[in-house]
C-alpha cells in the first residue's frame, strides 16, 4: 500500500512538471505582455517613458531572456515559494494566493462532502422508488439543477437573501471578525456566511451525483448477488444498504476525479459573482489584466488540487474494493 502511494506520488510529480509547462505556455500566450499594458497606461497618465526606463523594466522582469531561461527562472522559484511577480499588484504572487486558494479549497471540499451526503440519500431513495411520483419529482429537480448556470443561481440567491433577509452576501467574515484572531465565535461567523456559496455550488453537484448514484444503484440492483442476498432471506433494507449501496458507491468514487474539477470551476465563477475573498475574483481579474504570472500560478495550483484529489480518490477506492491490487 505504501509503495503504491509512493509510486503514485512519483507519477504525480511527472504530471506536475507537464502541468507547469502548460501553465507557463499560458503565461506566454497573450500577444501583448503586461509590460506593454503597463507602459501604455503610464503614457496615458501623461508620463513619458524613456527607452532606458523600458529597458530597466524589461530587465527587471527578465523579458529579454529566451523562453526556456524564463521558464527555468519561473519554475526554479517554486521550491522557495517564489512564483514570480504580480505586475498588477506589485507584489510577489506567493503572497497573494495562499489564503485565497485555502478558502477555495475549503469551500470546494465542504461542497463535495455536503452534496455527496445528500446525493447518496436521494439517489438511493429514487432508485428504490422507481416509477413513483417522488422519483419523477426528483428527476425533474435534477434536470433543473443541472440546467441553471451557477453564476445565475448565485445572482438570484444573492438578490433573494438581500431583499428578504437583508443579508450581506459576498463576505466570508463579518466586519468585526475579519482581522480577529481565530476563535469559536469567528468559526461560527464563518459558518453563517459560507453556506451561501456551498448551497449554490452544491445544487449542480448534488443533482449530478444523485443521478449517477441512482443509475449505479439500479445497475447493482440487477446484479445476481443482490438476488442472492434476497434469496438468503435478508431484509430488503439490509439488501439495499449492505449489499447494493456499497457496490454502487465505487463508480461514484471513481467519478470524484471528474467531480472535483467541476466544483473548483464552479467555485471560481461563483466567488467572482459573490466577490468572495477566494481565488475566483483575483484569477479572472488577472486574466483580464493579463497579469499572467498570477493567473498561471493559480492554474498550476488548481491542477495540483485536482491531482491530489485524484490520488485520494484512488486510495479511497482501494479501501472500498478488495479487487483492487496495489500494483
Amino acid at each position: 500500500m505504501i509503495s503504491y502511494i509512493i509510486r503514485r506520488l512519483g507519477y504525480m510529480l511527472i504530471t506536475l512538471v507537464f502541468v507547469t509547462i502548460v501553465g507557463f505556455f499560458i503565461i506566454e500566450l497573450p500577444p501583448g505582455s503586461y509590460l506593454e499594458f503597463h507602459i501604455q497606461s503610464l503614457r496615458q497618465q501623461g508620463g513619458d517613458v524613456t527607452p532606458d526606463q523600458i529597458q530597466a523594466l524589461e530587465r527587471r522582469y527578465g523579458l529579454g531572456d529566451p523562453v526556456h531561461i524564463r521558464f527555468y527562472k519561473w519554475i526554479s522559484g517554486f521550491p522557495r515559494g517564489d512564483f514570480g511577480q504580480s505586475f498588477q499588484h506589485q507584489r510577489p504572487v506567493g503572497e497573494l494566493i495562499w489564503s485565497r486558494l485555502g478558502y477555495t479549497l475549503l469551500i470546494s471540499v465542504a461542497t463535495l462532502i455536503v452534496s455527496w451526503g445528500i446525493a447518496i440519500l436521494v439517489g438511493v431513495y429514487s432508485a428504490t422508488h422507481r416509477y413513483t411520483i417522488p422519483d419523477y419529482l426528483i428527476t425533474v429537480l435534477q434536470f433543473i439543477g443541472l440546467a441553471i448556470p451557477n453564476f445565475l443561481l448565485a445572482l438570484v440567491l444573492m438578490i433573494f437573501l438581500q431583499q428578504t433577509f437583508g443579508m450581506r452576501v459576498g463576505v466570508l467574515f463579518s466586519r468585526e471578525f475579519r482581522d480577529a484572531p481565530f476563535s469559536i465565535a469567528k468559526m461560527i461567523d464563518l459558518l453563517s456566511n459560507i453556506w451561501v456559496p456551498i448551497v449554490i455550488l452544491g445544487v449542480a453537484g448534488t443533482a449530478w451525483t444523485s443521478r449517477v448514484m441512482r443509475a449505479n444503484l439500479l445497475d447493482v440492483l440487477n446484479m445476481q448477488y443482490v438476488q442472492t442476498a434476497r434469496a438468503k432471506g435478508i431484509h430488503e433494507r439490509k439488501v439495499i444498504w449492505k449489499h447494493a449501496v456499497r457496490n454502487a458507491l465505487h463508480p461514484l468514487v471513481m467519478t470524484l476525479g471528474m467531480a472535483l474539477p467541476g466544483i473548483i470551476s464552479g467555485e471560481v465563477v461563483v466567488s467572482t459573482v459573490l466577490n468572495l475573498p477566494t481565488s475566483g475574483p483575483l484569477f479572472f481579474q488577472a486574466l483580464i489584466q493579463q497579469d499572467m504570472y498570477l493567473a498561471g500560478t493559480f492554474l498550476v495550483f488548481f491542477a495540483v488540487a485536482l491531482l491530489v484529489g485524484n490520488l485520494l480518490a484512488d486510495i479511497m477506492l482501494a479501501g472500498l474494493d478488495p479487487r483492487i491490487q496495489y500494483r
Binding site: M223, Q224, Y225, Q227, T228, A229, R230, A231, K232, G233, I234, H235, H243, R246, N247, L320, D321, P322, R323
Partner: peptide
C-alpha cells in the same frame, strides 16, 4: 414469513458463479 422461508426452507443457487457472490465481502 417469506423471508423466514427464503434461505432457510427453500434455498436457491444461481447460474453465474462469477456474479452471484458479492465482490466486496
Amino acid at each position: 414469513q417469506m423471508r423466514r422461508i427464503r434461505g432457510n426452507e427453500i434455498a436457491m443457487i444461481f447460474q453465474e458463479p462469477m456474479t452471484s457472490l458479492n465482490p466486496v465481502y
